[in-house]
Simulated assay, not measured.
Amino acid sequence: MHPAFDPESITDALDRADMDLWTRQPPRSDSARLRFLLSRHANHHTLAARLRISPAELQAALRGRRGAPSEQLHYAITREVARLWQPLIRRWAHHSLAERGGMMVHFRGWFGFTGAAGSSDDGRFRLLTEQLPTLYISRLFRAREQEADEETLRRIVADAVGEAYFRVSPTRGLRMVELKDIDYIEFSY
């Protein structure tokens, strides 16, 4: 797993899975990647805020004055490129998955019902691999495109895995399945 990505983050897991769809690789150097990112952001200030650095630091990194950027900046650049690289291919794949299915999630985390303790379905750490129902695939991709927070994405994944694993649909008003304390999560399609 690439150290730039958080193994516990659903956002990063979706971006890692999308990297397998690329038909060509992004630029290799950080300065070339920054130039690509500038073409996708409105201005230097927007990109600097996204990378959590000052505009002056961004200018210095673009000019290559400070040599190699810090490890933290390098990882931020890598994550941002993964989020924005080849959007048409990503959109086509997401649309196709939302229609036909085929998205798998593999995770280790606390998962189960929030109800009465003692049953075999009670919440505990589980290592699971499940195929997500198509309804949730489109919800998950839509939320990711709108840059939803991790809690929202976790709720969607919990509902999807709850329906696939426990055969419990939250659409019937049953919101009893939780996913938390994720050690790692991966998606594949």
Rank of each mutant, 00 (worst) to 15 (best):
D149N: 11
E145G: 11
H41N: 14
F125K: 03
T46A: 03
E57P: 04
L21Y: 04
Y75D: 15
R91Q: 13
H45I: 11
R52Q: 11
R124W: 00
H41A: 07
R50V: 09
I89S: 01
G123T: 02
H44I: 08
H94P: 01
T171Y: 06
G64P: 12
L38R: 07
F166L: 15
R66A: 05
E71M: 05
F111N: 08
H95I: 11
R139D: 03
T134E: 01
A32F: 05
R100A: 10
R154N: 06
T171C: 08
P26H: 08
R33C: 15
Y184H: 12
K180P: 01
F187W: 05
S119H: 07
A4F: 04
T78Y: 01
G67L: 07
A158R: 07
L84K: 13
L179V: 10
V81C: 06
T152D: 00
V161T: 11
R28G: 10
I89F: 00
R90M: 04
A32R: 09
T23H: 09
R63T: 14
R155K: 08
R66E: 06
D6M: 06
G64D: 14
A17M: 15
E8R: 15
D121E: 02
A13E: 02
L73M: 15
L132Y: 03
A48T: 06
G109H: 03
R33Q: 15
R139I: 03
T23S: 14
M1F: 01
E145K: 13
E178T: 14
L128W: 02
I89W: 00
H44R: 08
F111A: 15
D15Y: 00
Q131E: 06
V168P: 11
A82C: 12
A116V: 13
G112R: 07
M19Y: 06
A17G: 08
D12R: 10
G118S: 08
M104W: 10
S120V: 10
Y189K: 10
R172F: 00
R50Y: 02
A49T: 12
R33L: 11
L21C: 04
L51Q: 09
F187P: 09
E151H: 13
A98E: 04
H74V: 15
S138K: 15
P3F: 07
V168T: 15
L135N: 12
L14E: 03
I182E: 04
S119N: 09
P55V: 14
R126P: 07
R65M: 14
R79E: 01
R40V: 08
R167L: 07
A56Y: 13
G118N: 05
A164E: 06
P170T: 12
L88Q: 12
A116I: 13
A13Y: 00
A56G: 14
G109P: 02
A148D: 02
L73Q: 13
A164G: 15
A117V: 09
L38Y: 01
R167T: 10
R144N: 03
P170M: 02
F113T: 12
M176I: 02
W85V: 11
F187M: 09
P69S: 14
L62V: 08
P170N: 07
T134G: 03
R16M: 10
I53L: 03
R52H: 11
I10S: 05
A116R: 13
D6I: 01
R35Q: 14
I77V: 15
M103R: 14
L34Q: 05
R66P: 01
S70W: 00
P26F: 06
L14F: 01
R40Y: 01
H44M: 06
A82L: 05
